[in-house]
């Protein structure tokens, strides 16, 4: 379980995240939604110790993220942010292999090679595995980084806007893959999403943020509702039930 208590982040005089306390249960897929500037990414990077918090604590299965040793935490939790180095002369396979670093410290065993093959297969990157990162399209590169995180084989997988820059087909593929990671491998997946319909169709749990604060949280059918979404995004929305999925339209 991920447990945040009284989490705040202050840059100079602006509070980006204000007193957020929440629990993310083990297992399943949790989405974090909310308008721009709501503090979603900052919250995620504080949970994953990429950004130091101004106030508050985060515990992952009882391990305080600011006090647990780097490698220890890296075997339990992985985080992928939006912007990653793209100009590296590194093959996809080399990148994915870095996912084994917390486990083997740079010296790859045959066990590690198995994990690397598996992650490459999982993300359908077999034909690109010897290509360099700077020769790939944005979507392929994104998948290569996700493969690295999968290869890290952690209980908790945190992703900041994994659907950025990828087309419909790959976005669906990515969400199905994360769903499978949660269902088949029992991982706890936490994603920041902008598209609320993806959040609606794939999540077990949704956290909604607004102006740095926790606005709502609950199951998709509790959050994907007109009164909640209209209040959250400040535009009129209409939620429809289509083939058992709750779809929100807000385009005109």
């Amino acid at each position: 379980m991920i447990e945040a208590r009284g989490l705040s982040k202050k840059y100079q005089d602006t509070l980006v995240v204000e007193d957020v306390s929440l629990q993310i249960p083990k297992g399943g897929l949790t989405s974090i939604i909310g308008p721009n500037g709501a503090g979603k990414s900052t919250l995620l990077s504080m949970i994953s110790r990429l950004t130091p918090m101004s106030v508050g604590t985060v515990e992952i299965d009882g391990f305080d993220v600011t006090r647990t040793s780097g490698p220890e935490l890296a075997r339990r939790l992985s985080i992928l942010r939006q912007h990653n180095e793209s100009s590296l002369r590194l093959t996809v396979r080399d990148l994915v292999a870095f996912g084994r670093f917390p486990h083997s410290g740079g010296r790859l065993t045959t066990e590690d090679q198995k994990h690397i093959d598996e992650a490459i297969q999982y993300l359908e990157l077999e034909e690109y595995q010897q290509r360099h990162l700077d020769e790939l399209s944005g979507g392929q590169r994104q998948r290569a980084y996700v493969a690295m995180v999968m290869c890290q084989d952690t209980e908790y997988v945190l992703l900041d806007e994994p659907l950025n820059n990828i087309d419909m087909r790959h976005a669906v593929g990515m969400m199905q893959l994360l769903r499978r990671a949660a269902d088949e491998k029992g991982k706890t997946v936490v994603v920041v999403l902008h598209d609320i319909n993806f959040a609606s169709c794939y999540s077990d749990h949704i956290i909604a943020m607004r102006r740095g604060q926790l606005a709502y949280q609950g199951m998709p059918e509790q959050i994907i509702r007109n009164e909640v979404l209209t209040d959250l995004y400040d535009i009129p929305t209409s939620v429809h039930e289509l083939n058992g999925q709750r779809i929100c339209t807000y385009f005109r």
Partner: peptide
């Protein structure tokens, strides 16, 4: 080996457990 990881940038390095 740590230097190899550091090429990937701060965020990825921290993710992979580098203090």
């Amino acid at each position: 080996h740590q230097l190899d990881v550091l090429i990937l940038g701060r965020d990825v390095a921290i993710n992979l457990g580098i203090p």
